[in-house]
Design a binder for these strands. Sequence first.
DNA 1: AACAAATGATACCATATTAGTATCATTTGT
DNA 2: ACAAATGATACTAATATGGTATCATTTGTT
Lengths: 135, 135
Amino acid sequence: MSLINRDTDYAIRALCFMAKNKKKFISAKELVRDLKIPRPFLRKILQTLNKRRVLRSYKGKSGGFVLVQPPKKIFVMDLVRIFQGGVKLRECIFKKKPCPNIRTCLLSRKLKEIEGKVISQLEVISIASLAGEIK
Amino acid sequence: MSLINRDTDYAIRALCFMAKNKKKFISAKELVRDLKIPRPFLRKILQTLNKRRVLRSYKGKSGGFVLVQPPKKIFVMDLVRIFQGGVKLRECIFKKKPCPNIRTCLLSRKLKEIEGKVISQLEVISIASLAGEIK
DNA sequence: AACAAATGATACCATATTAGTATCATTTGT
DNA sequence: ACAAATGATACTAATATGGTATCATTTGTT
């Protein structure tokens, strides 16, 4: 029931590393060395971040990845959306039919409220705030 | 990533039903008929609720289950604890070693905060509040 | 005393999700 | 031309979850 899965987690770490090295291209190799994430796995994540334009990738020798936006403007919630499709704390068990139970729906309503609060909290955690070492 | 799994969900429904029929013993049979939950599955849930003394069971012909406490005093968070072991929105990926990353731990701290808020919200949703039909 | 109707305990299976791996194609600086 | 980088995609393994099946025990009723 983790709010954040491994993809998101690894993405956050990679982005934090990059936030502190903004000057140059960063290759998957460097990230693997620093973050100790399995290489093919990290590459998949970087590719996704590229497609979703959080990063921009450059092929070829001495290629790598660069942040597209400043770390202040990248939020944990963005990554949760990319890698987990958002936060859904309440999937209705009856996916197709309308809920047969009023009670269930009362519960749903309350869970939706909680969900909204969680989302708005994730929307203000920036990569910058996580990357800061001393602060 | 649902906050509530099926066990908890079914338990809530069963308890809501019982909350409205407090007078007599209620058998698994009746609950199955009303709730449309697979029988052996519901029975397992009722057994757990009995062990954790949310219900009390009575064997034998015309036996069944009774609520031990008033519905006002049974909270969704109690059931989440029973069936899901609580709410853990952040399992540290590095279970054994201490986290190698400061950033990860900064994130952990923020997620813990969110988790605490979620828990306190679940702690005030009572079965009574979910069972009420017209209200 | 026997039987039926209820719960108790427990072992099992099937499916979906998740984590992680492997492979080959494409691009590009030197 | 080659090496070093990313792009795309298919596959495998482990774990969690949802659900089923079976047999034992208890107890009211006749």
